[in-house]
Computed example of a mutant assay.
Amino acid sequence: MTTDMTAVVYFSRAGENYGVGTVRTGNTAKLAEAIAQAAGAPIVEITRDEAYPAGYDETTAEAQQEQRTNARPRITLKGDIDALDKATTIYLGYPMWWGDAPMPVYTFLEGRDWNGKTIYPFCTHEGSGLGGTPGNIAKAAHGAKVENGLAVRGTTAQQDADATRHAVDSWLAQ
């Protein structure tokens, strides 16, 4: 009998964020922590080797340039990498940046074997929801099955832990 192993993997950015000011823990990191706690799953953070600037405007310029050029910045994974390698179910989180996931998420997706794995995308946003990211993830994660995702406003994830937990619990119960 096989056991379905799960892991929560996310990309997030602290510093100055849209709608919430300057934060120590990014919006998506807060949502990822709530999912990991509710699912009893280990957590892995995707970090960009060259950190984005702390300022919102500077990050915006750099990240938009990455999107325009379809860049794949170098990344490092932090956390329980062994659990990630064994997991067949991945909860994958990211902020929505101009209708898509940040480019470090695609570096992560394109650098792994996804055969036999299921991805549940989740994001923080300020109005766009998941947009077309589930389809983009399916294209980048060859062999993965991509399921229904969860979209939570970044302001909610950052400022309302009860509403965030409720959204996570409802999503996981589906």
Score class of each variant (00 low, 15 high):
residue 122 F to E: 11
residue 55 G to C: 01
residue 74 R to Y: 03
residue 8 V to Y: 04
residue 22 T to A: 12
residue 26 G to E: 03
residue 106 Y to W: 07
residue 121 P to W: 03
residue 16 E to W: 10
residue 82 D to N: 08
residue 100 D to K: 10
residue 40 G to P: 00
residue 24 R to Q: 12
residue 47 T to M: 03
residue 3 T to M: 05
residue 33 E to C: 02
residue 102 P to K: 09
residue 91 Y to H: 12
residue 98 W to H: 07
residue 63 A to F: 04
residue 61 A to S: 13
residue 121 P to L: 08
residue 106 Y to L: 12
residue 68 R to N: 08
residue 62 E to K: 13
residue 123 C to K: 13
residue 51 A to H: 14
residue 130 L to C: 05
residue 111 G to L: 00
residue 37 Q to H: 14
residue 91 Y to S: 04
residue 8 V to R: 08
residue 106 Y to M: 10
residue 120 Y to P: 01
residue 44 V to M: 13
residue 128 S to Q: 05
residue 115 N to D: 08
residue 77 L to Q: 05
residue 8 V to K: 00
residue 4 D to V: 15
residue 7 A to R: 02
residue 60 T to Q: 14
residue 43 I to W: 00
residue 15 G to V: 07
residue 90 I to A: 05
residue 26 G to N: 11
residue 81 I to A: 02
residue 94 Y to V: 04
residue 119 I to V: 13
residue 104 P to E: 08
residue 114 W to F: 02
residue 41 A to Q: 03
residue 99 G to D: 02
residue 24 R to Y: 05
residue 7 A to F: 04
residue 21 G to W: 15
residue 53 P to D: 07
residue 126 E to D: 11
residue 111 G to H: 03
residue 71 A to L: 09
residue 103 M to F: 00
residue 109 L to I: 12
residue 9 V to C: 09
residue 77 L to T: 09
residue 122 F to M: 11
residue 77 L to D: 01
residue 28 T to H: 11
residue 54 A to L: 10
residue 69 T to D: 14
residue 93 G to I: 12
residue 30 K to N: 03
residue 52 Y to Q: 09
residue 50 E to P: 00
residue 92 L to A: 07
residue 83 A to N: 04
residue 25 T to E: 13
residue 131 G to I: 05
residue 114 W to E: 02
residue 50 E to I: 14
residue 119 I to F: 09
residue 60 T to V: 01
residue 36 A to W: 00
residue 79 G to W: 09
residue 17 N to R: 12
residue 11 F to W: 01
residue 116 G to F: 02
residue 95 P to N: 13
residue 49 D to Q: 08
residue 63 A to D: 03
residue 44 V to E: 09
residue 63 A to Y: 00
residue 132 G to P: 11
residue 91 Y to I: 10
residue 91 Y to D: 05
residue 6 T to D: 13
residue 34 A to G: 00
residue 98 W to E: 04
residue 8 V to C: 04
